[in-house]
Amino acid sequence: MELKNLQHDEEQYKKLTGALKHMPKVNAPANFEADLMRRIRQEEESPEKISFLKKLFSPFALTSSSIAVAAATIVLFVLFADKDDFNSYEEFNKPELIIQDAPSGETVNEKPDEIKPEAEKKEIMAAQAVTESNEVLSATTDEFASALVSKFSKAAVRIAASGKNDSNLTGELKAAPSARPGTKLLYKPAVKESETTKDTGNTEEDSVKINEVK
């Protein structure tokens, strides 16, 4: 049975390939060659149309456009490259001190005119740290400012009374004006006050009272 089926399939297969092989041949029209040669001659005579993209990416267009771009870059560089602004590495890398919310309510951005010596830099950094922490605490309001004034005056009075010189604190106090030239520092009046108390010989309690009255 299976053999019969296989033989049947084989016969059908042969019929199919035979039918394909003996399909009528389709021929070209009689004027095919004449039409072809005419078309070839026409194409040879008329110049080939070049597409926009071909024109754009043609070697000549690429060369001329690249030259134009290079020239434009050089011109822009020569015109706008300011040596003072762009060429000084040191100037570019100078630290910028930004002091916000000074007691006067002004914001001062100041750049040092020249690079300061190492020791002075350290002082600046220390002063910056102190003032920044103070600034965080004091914010912008006058209430905070006055609170800080009294706080520092108390500390100054204490130092004066003990007769000891707190090197860290005095260092900070000294460094602060140089770090922030032109700004009013919160603790400056306190230092002055401590000096006055020392001069006049008032006690700590007296100076505190003075501050409270003020």
């Binding site: 041949k25 389709v26 070209a28 095919f32 060659e33 039409d35 072809l36 078309r39 070839i40």
Partner: peptide, 28 residues
């Protein structure tokens, strides 16, 4: 080659006019 190619392309496309164009394009 025009007739063998014509036969081949016609059997593939099944359209006489299009076959003519394709064979011409081949020759070009």
């Amino acid at each position: 080659y025009k007739n063998p190619l014509f036969n081949y392309v016609f059997r593939f496309l099944g359209d006489y006019e299009q076959t003519s164009d394709v064979v011409q394009e081949t020759m070009i």
